Simulated scan of single mutants.
Amino acid sequence: MSEATITDDARLESERPQLLGLAYRMLGTVADAEDAVQEAYARWYRMPPADRAGIVKPGAWLMRVTSRICLDELGSARVRRESYVGEWLPEPLPDASLFAPPSGAGSPGADPLDRVVREDELSTAVLVVLESLSPAERVAFVLHDVFAVPFGEIAEVVGRSPEACRQLASQARRHVAERRGGTASRQQHDAVLRAFVAAASTGELGGLVALLDPSVRLVSDGGGLVSAARRPVHGSDDVARFVLGLMAKFAAITTLSTHETADGLVLAFAEGDVVGTVVTAEVRADRISELRIMRNPEKLRLWQRRPRPPGG
């Protein structure tokens, strides 16, 4: 292999983190993102050398191909999730820095609507909202608002006109803004979650109920691999009792630690060195409006690599 080929391959491989971030935002799990990106690279290397040589911007080519693969995957994923055991949740990340957007990416301008997901775009809360979009809306939104891809190039991915893609991204942006409007600041979120941990640790039902919105919703994802609530739990009283039941069941065999993530402060429960449960929360008006419990071990792989924080 020539030195030029090695250099070209290294330059091409440097695109992988950005492509993984793109695919994760579109598909919601790291494993699916890795598969999509790997397929894009496979298609690149399957091309005849002469065809590869004619591509001026290999990184842009890989982004378009990865996006098309994700678009196809989003369509089939909805069918597969009909047979998913229990509730499906996006994979929570212990560290968002790996999938941070490239410097300068994202829509320009000072309009808060255009920057609605800049601070928490990798949070499970935002990914849950993105799940409610159509595949074409999600692809257009992620490509334009996060990665600043022009609508002309997005049109090549989704098979629609640039103006239609502009409308798709605009509709998605409004939907995200509406769903995320009213959520607490990071400081408020973390303060409520710390109070939640303290109340749950005491076992006092009233104190816990006071921190929950009356219409709070708890969702648990075990993927059929571990025990988890098959259906959402609704209402402050039922959710509080459910949480206290879990605390009583696992307190003797697990250790609790808190971590700063794209979701703000999250809770991780570990048995020995194995993290088996990660809890993220959505806070509105100083009360928890949604709790998401990830127990599916296939979506906790990255948490097993995370070093134990000092005092955690």
Rank of each mutant, 00 (worst) to 15 (best):
E204K: 09
L225K: 13
V192L: 06
R217M: 08
T202H: 01
T261K: 02
G222P: 05
D238H: 14
A229M: 09
G264N: 10
A240T: 10
G264L: 11
A198T: 07
A191Q: 08
E260Q: 14
S227D: 13
M247H: 15
S201T: 13
V226Q: 05
V216K: 09
A251R: 15
F196R: 06
S220L: 04
G206V: 01
G224R: 08
A248W: 00
E204H: 07
T254C: 12
L211P: 03
L246I: 13
D237G: 05
S215F: 00
F250K: 05
L212M: 07
G235D: 12
L193I: 09
V239Q: 07
L256G: 02
F242Q: 13
K249D: 15
A198D: 10
E260V: 11
D213F: 01
Q187C: 02
T254F: 05
R231A: 13
Q188K: 05
D190Y: 02
H259E: 02
G203P: 06
R194V: 03
S201I: 05
S236F: 04
A252Y: 04
S236G: 14
G235F: 06
H259Q: 08
V226R: 07
S257R: 04
S257C: 04
V219R: 08
V233C: 12
R217T: 13
A229N: 12
A200T: 10
I253E: 08
A229K: 10
V233P: 04
V209G: 00
R231D: 15
F242K: 13
R186Q: 10
D213I: 00
T261C: 00
G222A: 08
V239P: 10
R186M: 09
G207A: 06
G264M: 05
R194E: 12
V243K: 08
A198S: 06
T202C: 06
A240G: 10
R194T: 09
V219N: 04
A229Q: 15
T202F: 01
R231H: 14
V197N: 04
L218R: 05
D221P: 08
L212P: 01
A228N: 10
F196G: 00
V216I: 08
A262N: 01
V197H: 02
T255G: 15
V216H: 09
S257D: 03
V239L: 09
A240C: 05
L225W: 08
A198L: 10
H259S: 00
G224L: 12
L256H: 02
D263I: 00
G203E: 04
G235I: 07
G222E: 05
G203I: 02
G223I: 04
A262Q: 01
M247Q: 15
D237H: 14
T255C: 12
D213E: 03
A200C: 07
H189N: 12
L225P: 04
R241K: 15
L211T: 01
D238I: 14
R230Q: 14
R231E: 15
